[in-house]
């Protein structure tokens, strides 16, 4: 296939080149390229308006790129309408978890049904097998059988986010995109979910694209990171190196603004 670049080895699950997205006259994402290896964790860091969420939505196919290409698991993703069989195949390659645990579940759908619907769409299982697998998945994210019969409103925010993760991994995708997936959670719950995500990656070898504004969280969860600003990548590299010795002024400013012991807030003139 000609669209495969030389850099993309057999273990490359995402190869995106020159991605661009315009909304009317505004350019949300401008010439962003990235590669993701099987089982790796790539963070996309940026502030609001940096284009990180638009990038995530283009990767999973919720937005059509204005320019550039995305190749997932060796197959180029052509823009435009695709058959439902192709859409289901893409679903098994990449899944997404959103920020808001409240609106990412259908408020009328019971938790067990959320997971079973996923399974039903992608695997031919008997009702008994399906139910058993759904319970296994709920247990894998730290929920139990009694949660299966509950409605989303009976769960806390952290528990709902666990359900969203279970729904995504039910499909057994190669890649999970996490769009600010822990940003809306309490600190103590955030730690639980970060550990859960680390466990899932260790067990299944799934790769993560972790979209976040939070450098400390990114530090904990990712191997590699892109720093985005104004739709462009301003710096990229191995996460630890990037955060311990940032090269670009923007990354340095971002890092300097993170509260930590001995930190004092700094004042800059408004641009």
């Amino acid at each position: 296939m000609t669209s495969l670049k030389k850099s993309a080895g057999p273990d490359t699950v995402i190869e995106a080149a020159g991605l661009r997205k315009e909304f009317g006259p505004a350019v949300a994402v401008d010439d962003v390229s990235l590669t993701l290896e099987r089982g790796a964790s790539l963070a996309v860091v940026g502030e609001s308006g940096s284009g990180k969420t638009t990038l995530a939505r283009m990767l999973v196919g919720l937005e059509t790129p204005t320019g550039g290409t995305v190749t997932v698991c060796g197959r180029p993703r052509k823009p435009g309408r695709v058959s439902s069989a192709e859409r289901r195949r893409r679903a098994r390659e990449m899944q997404i978890v959103f920020q808001d645990p409240y609106s990412s579940l259908d408020k009328l759908q019971r938790i067990g049904a959320v997971i079973e619907t996923s399974l039903d769409l992608h695997f031919s299982l008997t009702p008994g097998e399906r139910r058993k697998r759904a319970l296994e998945l709920l247990e894998a994210v730290g929920l139990s059988e009694r949660h299966a019969s509950m409605l989303p409103r009976q769960l806390s925010g952290g528990q709902r986010q666990r359900v969203a993760i279970a729904r995504a991994i039910a499909v057994e995708p190669q890649i999970l995109v996490l769009d600010e997936a822990v940003a809306a959670l309490d600190v103590s719950i955030q730690a639980q979910i970060l550990n859960l995500l680390a466990d899932i990656r260790e067990r299944s070898g799934i790769a993560y694209v972790f979209i976040s504004h939070d450098l400390a969280v990114v530090h904990q969860i990712s191997d590699f990171a892109l720093v985005m600003s104004g739709g462009r990548v301003v710096e990229r590299g191995a996460t630890r190196a990037l955060l311990s010795a940032p090269q670009e002024a923007y990354t340095r400013a971002l890092r300097a603004a993170v509260p930590r012991p001995g930190w004092k807030p700094e004042r800059r003139p408004v641009g």
Partner: peptide, 26 residues
């Protein structure tokens, strides 16, 4: 616009399926 609809789409659900199973009941 709500994320649960986007999630269903990324899961590979058909448009009709999403409209009948999610939109209509809500």
């Amino acid at each position: 616009q709500l994320p649960y609809i986007a999630a269903a789409w990324v899961q590979g659900r058909s448009a009709v399926g999403i409209c009948v199973r999610h939109l209509l009941p809500n």
